[in-house]
Simulated scan of single mutants.
Amino acid sequence: MIERRPGLTVLSHLVLILGVLIVAFPVYVTIIASTQTTAQIVQNTPMSLLPGDHAFETYRLALFGGSTEAGGRINPAWPMMWVSLVTALLISFGKIAISILSAFAIVYFRFPLRGLIFWMIFITLMLPVEVRIGPTYGVVASLGMLNSYAGLTIPLIASATATFLFRQFFLTVPDELVEAARMDGAGPMRFFWDILLPLSRTSIAALFVIQFIYGWNQYLWPLLVTTKEDMYPVVLGIRRLISGDAYTEWNVVMATAMLAMLPPALVVILMQKWFVKGLVDSEK
């Protein structure tokens, strides 16, 4: 039995509150900056931490684009958010589909060098992105997939981590269930579709949340394979709003950053229960 000590309880809560404040303060500053004008952000040192009265204009400008007071031109964020959404969904569903089928084949099919093939897949985790990105870009460019959803997603949909996750889960499925399905005349794909897939719902949900955030936050790969503005994801669009030595509309940058946070945050909030349950079930 765990002994409850009031002092330790207070200390643990203080540590948790401090951690929340450290994580939430940059988000709060971003929200506040998105409600002010660029002049208020730049001229006030330090920047005011109270909300401004330009939130509607700033978010309208960030989402739909238009001309700024300084004479600059802001590209709308919603097409970039659409590209990010399509990319994230294709990467998520692609990773799940390929990984679950790969794990199913490795666990339930008997073929030569099965163990070696699994470890060859697993060893790809040890290869850093910098080693693979050059050859991958060469293949994508030679196939004419630059500035396309195929180029943004296909090189990223294979996942050794997801394959390992599903493999470990399938190993926990009782052999009696496999034998019962075989005795009932169920073939491999019928067993996969009617038994394994429903049992894997929580693992699929957890993996979907992780891979959606991974796909949404892609920066380096889109930076290489996109040269047209209509194929820029929102993360790349935020970087292009920062003009370096030129005048930067920081309020629009912060508003676009907040808009970019919303879809991943909604996915985590809506699927939080399934996400946690999937992680717990996977560990078992």
Rank of each mutant, 00 (worst) to 15 (best):
Y59T: 03
A70D: 07
V173N: 01
A206D: 13
L50M: 09
D281T: 12
N147L: 12
L156S: 10
L11W: 13
F25W: 13
Q272L: 14
P79D: 10
P79R: 00
A265S: 12
K228C: 02
I117R: 11
T38W: 05
D245N: 11
L262N: 04
M261Y: 11
E69A: 15
S102W: 00
I22N: 06
M1Q: 04
I117C: 06
L85S: 02
V107Y: 09
P263D: 08
F93R: 06
L21V: 14
P128L: 01
L241V: 01
L156C: 14
T58H: 13
W221V: 00
G278S: 11
Q218K: 08
L259M: 14
L14V: 03
E283M: 12
M47H: 01
G19N: 13
I121T: 09
L266D: 04
T58M: 10
L152Q: 10
R240C: 14
G138H: 10
V252C: 10
R4C: 04
Y28D: 07
P135E: 10
G237P: 12
L266A: 14
V15N: 05
Y59H: 09
R182P: 11
V276M: 14
A158F: 15
L177E: 15
Y214D: 08
V86N: 08
Y232T: 03
T58F: 08
N44Y: 02
V235S: 15
